[in-house]
């Protein structure tokens, strides 16, 4: 990192017109180096392994609110559908892999934790009519993970400390006090992401991108992407998605329906196979 900063500063110096070099150069160079150091720190990327540990902590915060729904058959089915979808997504693998689970929450909601843990409240499963609709919803969550929407919630003010540890001296082991400091940074980062995943939801722009990617993922896997439209329409008919509630951060249903209808034009006809609907219903019997 230090070499990049030095190169950038040197290049910046070369790009400044020569006639100006006599003018308070020390101040300019100082300003450039200071600015580049700050930006280099901000550019420190969360690695997939760090994303994994952030995601585990966020998932723990979700599951402190909604415990795991212990039904092995239902959870296995959710993983079968979910892994079918993640395997054809733009990011088929993560540091720890994708994992899907049903939670004992009645609020119709789903949570995409960074790194690939995707949690679905049983209250949401009760709203779904068939496997292809479930696939559309899980594909939407896979897209949030693949596009790292959760990680983007980390406030810029956290980067200085993260950059400090990323640029730390090689060959040095952390002291207990440094581990405490790093854990404090971890707590802040996890809180930022959990707030977005659990409370405020993703931006409408991220939701739109996730919808578009979900249609592509569902189609690539062999599902009927039009079932996403059917699901959103059914939610609108029930008045879900207007104002408050778990889908409040998504575009309003009428707007979302129009966007999905437009995006569906990119795909050919597809069938919602009865064999899939039958196994979906058999799996959902585990909800009772």
């Amino acid at each position: 990192m230090k070499r990049i900063i030095l190169l950038a500063a040197v290049a910046a110096m070369a790009l400044v017109p020569s006639s100006s070099r006599a003018v308070d150069w020390g101040s300019i160079a100082g300003s450039v180096v200071q600015g580049t150091v700050q930006m280099a720190e901000a550019a420190k990327e969360i690695t997939p392994s760090e994303e994994h540990y952030i995601g585990r902590a966020v998932a723990a915060m979700v599951m402190a609110k909604y415990p795991l729904f212990n039904n092995a058959g239902l959870n296995r089915y959710l993983n079968q559908v979910g892994l079918t979808l993640s395997s054809v997504s733009e990011r088929p693998n993560t540091y720890g892999g994708y994992h899907f689970a049903v939670l004992a929450g009645e609020e119709p909601n789903a949570f995409a934790c960074p790194g690939g843990i995707i949690l679905v409240n049983r209250g949401l499963l009760r709203q779904i009519q068939n496997e292809d609709q479930l696939a559309a919803i899980l594909a939407h969550e896979v897209a949030h993970v693949a596009q790292r929407h959760g990680i983007s919630a980390i406030k810029k003010s956290r980067w200085t400390k993260l950059g400090f540890y990323a640029a730390g001296e090689v060959g040095k082991q952390y002291t207990p006090s440094e581990i405490g400091d790093l854990t404090g940074a971890f707590q802040n980062v996890v809180t930022d992401v959990a707030k977005k995943v659990i409370e405020s939801g993703y931006s409408q722009s991220d939701e739109k991108k996730a919808d578009q990617a979900a249609l592509r993922i569902a189609w690539n896997a062999g599902y009927n992407p039009a079932e996403m439209l059917e699901f959103v329409k059914s939610q609108e008919a029930k008045g879900i998605g207007h104002g408050q509630g778990p889908f409040a951060s998504h575009p309003k249903p009428e707007k979302r329906i129009k966007m999905i209808e437009g995006d569906l034009g990119a795909f050919g006809p597809a069938a919602t196979e009865k064999v899939r609907t039958a196994r979906f219903k058999a799996a959902m019997a585990g909800l009772r």
Partner: peptide, 11 residues
């Protein structure tokens, strides 16, 4: 200008 050039190289 210098900062933008430096940032372009970094990014």
């Amino acid at each position: 200008f210098a900062l933008v050039a430096a940032l372009a190289l970094i990014s």
